[in-house]
Design a protein around this nucleic acid. Sequence first.
DNA 1: TATAGAATTGTAATGATTACAAATTTATAA
DNA 2: TTATAAATTTGTAATCATTACAATTCTATA
Lengths: 134, 134
Amino acid sequence: MENIQNLLSHHQIKPSYTRMVIFRYLRDNHTHPTVDEIYQALAEELPTLSKTTVYNTLKLFIDHHLVREINLKEQKRYDVVTTPHAHFKCDRCDELYDVEIAPPSLDEKSSELFVVRDVQLLYHGVCRKCQKTT
Amino acid sequence: MENIQNLLSHHQIKPSYTRMVIFRYLRDNHTHPTVDEIYQALAEELPTLSKTTVYNTLKLFIDHHLVREINLKEQKRYDVVTTPHAHFKCDRCDELYDVEIAPPSLDEKSSELFVVRDVQLLYHGVCRKCQKTT
DNA sequence: TATAGAATTGTAATGATTACAAATTTATAA
DNA sequence: TTATAAATTTGTAATCATTACAATTCTATA
Ligand SMILES: [Mn+2]
Ligand SMILES: [Mn+2]
Ligand SMILES: [Zn+2]
Ligand SMILES: [Zn+2]
């Protein structure tokens, strides 16, 4: 918790208790959780927690580049790992796996046209577990 | 229109007039339109057109691999070009540009785990036009 | 012309996200 | 300490693209 306090401060985020707890959850659960999953998981520890606060806090983390947002078509997921990597979404079980492939840079021609701020490389299909269960 | 009729038939889709008009719009407008844009554009030619029909028809095209769906966080876009390519979304003007980069295949290790059905490579940032206007 | 099936339509429901104002907590100054 | 301002958190309502679904219209065939 000490670490988290320093990390948030370092990124110009006032380390409120709520913020630290939310960040700790993301640090300790690399499951690419949804807002609702975060909210449900912390509701016991923070009985007055509001879902709006989860939204607000995640937006704050994202603005300060501590967390990345993954826009799936169903809902948003959150990832505390901000280094470039891809994801695999299983359409059967909805799990979102990390894939250690760096998204390719723009080709020369496109680089002249576009200033890239973010890249998302997302694979869809069926995961190992779900292949076995037909 | 003759061509479209054949194309749809060839893909086991009964070429109703509505379907042909919707397909023609996609063929002639490679702008990655939204459902609403398609609906608005065709409302004059097809005065009784329903937005549900646009949704239904696009789903049909997608199921038959004639069209691809691009899931942006705001709303879905549709692309009649089904060959592998990437997209650049300008966060200023919301335009979605084609980028001729093929999404990378899974690495060997991941290939053992996942069966891929679809890949999406999406860049975000600011386009040329919007860079000029500050 | 009658009937079945397919296609289209209109309306209501869904659900994640956002907007926003009220309430609470925390920091700052008198 | 006490008062005041600012920041944080909360609860509720609004938004809006998408889906569900039943009713209607159209089409093909006997
Ligand atoms: Mn990840
Ligand atoms: Mn395209
Ligand atoms: Zn799975
Ligand atoms: Zn632009």
